[in-house]
């Protein structure tokens, strides 16, 4: 497979790879490294890629596995995860400061979830994959995904409600 053909194949979901990596690794730098790593892993499969029904699903699975490995080895090395404050580069001008402030609480709420739930929220609420796709990517059945997602959404809502109630925000 030629490089141009390969890059064309990856292009439609490259941002999704990066965003999933950023969700889990938090730092932009590390997310970029992870994306690069996934590119190389995919490239090394070379013509074997054609055998996959969905390269996108494969790429997302690889990204998830790579990031979880990174987190595990980080924890093993007793390194703390640098938590970036919520930064929004693309916000439209009319976006109110209050909105962005509220969004930062949603981000913190998601960060407080177990990794599995973070991944599911990322795949469903942000990337809008349907349940069959998520099931393929995570090697889980759809019911288990729905259960985890429902739990995650409720916890996010609760987290926000609390911050509003106590006026921490």
């Amino acid at each position: 497979m030629e490089q141009i053909e390969f890059l064309k194949l990856i292009e439609p979901f490259r941002n999704k790879i990066f965003r999933l990596a950023r969700r889990l690794l938090v730092s932009v730098q590390e997310a970029e490294d992870a994306t690069q790593e996934v590119y190389i892993k995919l490239w090394n499969k070379n013509d074997g890629l054609r055998e996959y029904q969905s390269v996108e699903a494969l790429a997302m699975t690889m990204t998830k596995n790579y990031c979880l490995d990174q987190l595990r080895s980080k924890r093993a090395g007793n390194l703390s995860i640098v938590h970036n404050n919520y930064k929004d580069r693309e916000a439209p001008l009319q976006t109110q400061v209050e909105d962005r402030d509220n969004w930062s609480w949603v981000e913190k709420a998601i960060a407080s979830l177990p990794e599995q739930q973070q991944i599911i929220v990322q795949m469903r609420d942000i990337e809008q994959y349907d349940y069959t796709e998520i099931a393929e990517m995570l090697q889980m059945n759809e019911t288990a995904i729905r259960v985890a997602l429902s739990r995650a959404r409720k916890q996010i809502r609760e987290f926000i409600t609390k911050t509003h109630a106590y006026g921490i925000a």
């Binding site: 941002n15 990066f18 932009v28 994306t35 693309e90 909105d99 809502r157």
Partner: peptide
């Protein structure tokens, strides 16, 4: 806030 945040995140690009 939730839906606003989700939508905003879809525009995050490397």
């Amino acid at each position: 806030s939730m839906f606003g945040y989700f939508e905003d995140q879809r525009s995050v690009v490397p």
